[in-house]
Amino acid sequence: MTGTRGNLLPVYVLADESGSMGPYIQDLNRGLAALHEALLGEPMAAAKVRFSILGFADDVHERLRLADLRRENELPALYARGRTSYHAAFTTLHRRIPQDVQALKAEGYAVHRPAVFFLSDGQPTDESWLDAYELLIDRNRTPGAPNIIACGIGQVEAATIVQVATQQEYGFGAMGGVDLGAAIAQFCTALTKSIVESGRALGSAQPELVVQQPAGFRMAIDVV
C-alpha cells in the first residue's frame, strides 16, 4: 500500500428486470433517482462511492459502471424484460467485482469490501444459480467477495431473499403500501453513510457492515 489516493466503496445495484417485476420497475427507477439526489446532498459520502447498476433478466445489461454519482446528470433506467436468470446475475458479478477492485486499486485507491443491493421478487426461472452464488460470496475463492443485501419486492418468495442475503439480517421484504422508491433511496443512503464510517458491531469479532432495518421493509427472516 502506498500513500492512498482515497478510500472507495464499490456499490452494485443488481436489479431484477424480468417480466414479473413489471409493476415495480418504475418504483425502482424512482428509488434510484431519489438515491442519486440524496447522495448529491451528502457530497463527502458520495465521493467515496463508485456506483454500478446491473439489470438482469435472461442476461445481464450493464446500465452503469463504477460511476462517481456526483458526475452523473441522471441514472439510467431499468426495463422489465424476459425471464429471471439468477445464474447470469451472479456469474456476471463474480467476473466483474475482482476486475473492478483491481482497477480501483491500480488507480491508487484503497477499496472497502463491495456492497451489493439485490432487488428482486425472489422468483428465479432457473434452478442452477446456487453454485454461481456460492462462488461469488466465497472470500477464499473470490477476491473482494461482496456483502449482499437482498430486498424482496412485489410478490416476494421470502425464502429466496434470505438465501441470497449474505447474512440473515441483510434480507428484507418490502411491506405493502409503502413508497417503495423513497424507501429504497433512504435505505441505500443510510447504508452508504454507515459503511464508510468506522463500524463496530457488538459481539462480533469482525463486524464489517451494520445494516439497520429500512423503513418500509421488514426482515425477510420474519416472513419465511
Partner: peptide
Amino acid sequence: KFSADDEVFSSAVTA
C-alpha cells in the same frame, strides 16, 4: 489498519 496484501480493507475496530 492496512496491509499491502489485503484485497479489501475493513473499518471494524477493537475499542
